[in-house]
Design a protein around this nucleic acid. Structure first.
Lengths: 216, 216
DNA sequence: TACTACTTCCTGAGCGATCAGTAAGTTATA
DNA sequence: TATAACTTACTGATCGCTCAGGAAGTAGTA
């Protein structure tokens, strides 16, 4: 038989199996949401039997939590160094403007690189963040960077320089177009993936934040 | 028999039945999402038999679409007059500032009055707005008001005055805190329903937009 | 008014499909 | 051989939907 269909029995490797299951689960949970992502579909995508996910992660709930934990851990790995860089940049010549640009650039870059993360957060928001409460979910990285930036600006406290409000607006301006690419942006005739739009969006956000902070 | 358990057969009323079914469906679709809102639960909440929703609306899909259509029609009823008022306010003494305040006030008021609408849009966004394409979904009201406001400001065209970018930021700043009350705001220790926060949020948005537009 | 014919509204029961979870069995590896 | 890795087969529950039929209302006719 020349090159017959080789069953190609794969070597047993629990770590690898866990990983491919987590990958498949992340993709399907992000794409379809918790309810619509069936264990069978996850197993099928991971090319394992339908019972293996439950073997490693106890049940669907456990698998979902493992996905969340891995996503949030990755967020920390990306945003914590970013915050350090932003704080460092505040002391250099570019000053506030350069630091703010680095912050927005890094944050938007993270969101663009991790669409699954954005979608998982979206599902969680609609589910009242019930499953989020069990996971370490507070990333103070962006907040830390923004507060540091505010500290070097004019020191006059003002309602519009309220760090909380500013942080919400920052995240909103970055997050919202990704969440609503198929609703609002599509209705406006905008392709959220278009490079020109993404660049214009970034410049708009940086400029807007500088003006709100009123630096200079 | 003194006041025995009266079955209280209710008078037949197709219009009323349609309405109570739509009300129940809207509440459950908004709360749980399309998949998790079962026809049985909807019927139960509407206090009708489990088969009546399908009798009136053909199937679950039809019921969902009817809910969406009613919600979007109500949005038009609220936002179109608002846009007219904003345009009218642009000509008066308050000028740009007053008009912008009226716009944000009205838009935030609508969103606060219709949490079901906000949540339904959220579910739709995550589902790729598949079911939204069939309904009239484009409300140009806010866009119309904003463009009119921009026209009376300084006429210099600038990237930061790009009406599209500005509209996205406006909606993002208003919408996002409502969508992510249980995720980001909760993680920040903020109660999104707190009156003080809501007021501060409104002032922040108005001030931010004025600064981005750079009027005066 | 009284009766019949017909339509619309509404219910309860049940069918087929899907899903999460489990238990028992099989194979690879140490 | 003992154990961990993995599969196959199965169960109970739930869901969307259909269907037969009954109750309520309407129109026509006398």
């Amino acid at each position: 038989m020349p090159a017959a269909a080789q069953p190609r029995r794969r070597r047993r490797d629990a770590q690898r199996s866990r990983r491919v299951i987590l990958d498949a689960a992340e993709a399907l949970f992000a794409q379809r949401g918790y309810d619509a992502a069936s264990m069978g579909a996850i197993a099928s995508r991971a090319r394992v039997s339908s019972a293996l996910p439950a073997y490693f992660f106890a049940d669907k709930e456990g698998l979902y939590r493992a996905v969340l934990e891995r996503c949030f851990a990755e967020r920390e790995e990306r945003l914590e160094p970013l915050a350090d860089e932003v704080v460092a940049a505040l002391g250099r010549e570019g000053g506030l403007a350069g630091a703010l640009r680095h912050l927005i650039d890094g944050y938007l870059g993270f969101l663009a690189d991790r669409p699954d993360f954005v979608r998982l957060i979206g599902w969680e928001a609609l589910h009242g963040a019930r499953r989020l409460r069990a996971t370490p979910r507070h990333s103070a990285a962006v907040e830390r960077a923004l507060r540091a930036a505010l500290a070097v600006g004019s020191s006059a406290p003002s309602p519009r320089r309220d760090p909380d409000q500013l942080l919400i607006s920052l995240v909103a301006m970055c997050f919202f177009p990704l969440e609503h690419a198929d609703t609002m942006l599509s209705a406006m005739g905008i392709d959220a993936g278009d490079a020109t739009f993404v660049q214009a969006r970034k410049e708009h956000i940086i400029d807007a934040l500088m003006r709100i902070i009123d630096a200079g």
